[in-house]
């Protein structure tokens, strides 16, 4: 396990630098004046251009510029927003809210998704399975922002069960509706994945052997079928974190939540590209790190990975 962890960390390093460089490269070496592009249609205030040139070391070669940027990144300087506030400051305030929202969504999609997927997989071809499949297809085909509007309209405006906007402290209760919206697509994917995986494992030889040992059906299903079906679900959760981040930008935008996603949403809509790029760079780094964690969890679940040479 130690060896595996070490190897994964080593493999992550080029990906980390590659991905951050890619973002840096996209923004700062595209044709046209990067500063003008950053500011879109609004010309920056006089003096700002010079300030930014100095800030981003634009007179130096690209690689050197990048190294300076990444060096600052490691020292906790994650960049600056449009209005000049350090990204790390904004993060400190916004991150806890987004973290709460993401946790709620994750708990919902993982627990409900696995449960529904398990039952559907065990009753393949029956009505529960059929309806779970239909619902999951529908959830995937409706974009998150449409679902967000609809939920807000139905449960917030018409039924009045939830507040339509979340207050700045964003208590848990107010986050339930946005979390449901955020979790919806991933929930549907997890249902489908678990269902397929459970149905597959039910036919596995080792499950028949477990039954032949004299184990109860409940034990066979939980210890052998479910446990083995979780392995692909965990891998999916890692990749899916990316969609969760995009989802957070949209849901926090719709429900007016002052989290990281909401900040990025406002910045995108207002065309404040510096803010957008700085935050997304941080998100990508989180994504890479989270995937490392997921890989380790994957190894913990599947000994064949752990002991692979």
């Amino acid at each position: 396990m130690l060896w595996y962890t070490g190897r994964r960390v080593l493999q992550m390093i080029p990906v980390f630098f590659g991905a951050t460089f890619l973002i840096y490269f996209m923004v700062f070496s595209l044709p046209g004046d990067p500063i003008a592009a950053l500011y879109g249609d609004r010309p920056p205030a006089p003096g700002v251009i010079e300030q930014i040139r100095a800030q981003y070391n634009l007179d130096k070669p690209l690689l050197q510029q990048y190294l300076i940027y990444i060096g600052n990144f490691f020292q906790g300087d994650l960049g600056t927003t449009y209005s000049g506030r350090p990204v790390s400051d904004v993060m400190a305030g916004a991150f806890p809210i987004t973290f709460r929202l993401a946790m709620l969504a994750l708990v919902f999609e993982a627990f409900a998704g696995i449960l529904v997927g398990l039952v559907a997989g065990l009753r393949k071809g029956k009505w529960f399975d059929a309806s779970a499949l239909v619902v999951s297809l529908l959830l995937i085909s409706v974009p998150t922002f449409v679902l967000g509007f609809l939920f807000r309209l139905i449960f917030g405006v018409q039924l009045g069960w939830f507040r339509t906007t979340v207050s700045s402290e964003a208590p848990w209760g107010e986050l339930i509706l946005p979390a449901l919206v955020l979790a919806s697509v991933s929930f549907a994917y997890i249902v489908r994945l678990t269902r397929a995986s459970v149905a597959d494992n039910l036919n596995a030889d080792f499950v028949r052997t477990a039954t032949a040992k004299g184990l109860s059906r409940r034990r066979v299903v939980t210890v052998h079928v479910l446990r083995n079906s979780l392995v692909p679900v965990v891998t999916f959760l890692g990749v899916d974190l990316g969609s969760l981040m995009v989802g957070a930008i949209i849901t926090e935008g719709i429900f007016n939540i002052n989290g990281v996603g909401g900040t990025v949403y406002k910045a995108i809509v207002l065309g404040e590209s510096t803010t957008v790029v700085s935050f997304i760079a941080v998100m990508v780094v989180i994504f890479v790190l989270a995937n490392l964690l997921v890989d380790l969890l994957y190894a913990a679940l599947d000994p064949r990975i752990r002991y692979a040479k």
């Binding site: 030889d205 028949r208 052997t209 477990a210 032949a212 210890v223 052998h224 446990r227 599947d302 000994p303």
Partner: peptide, 16 residues
């Protein structure tokens, strides 16, 4: 008791 055919696939790979 039951002893199955293929020893490769009849033990659950994720349990010791």
């Amino acid at each position: 008791g039951y002893v199955p055919q293929d020893p490769m696939s009849n033990l659950n790979p994720v349990w010791n």
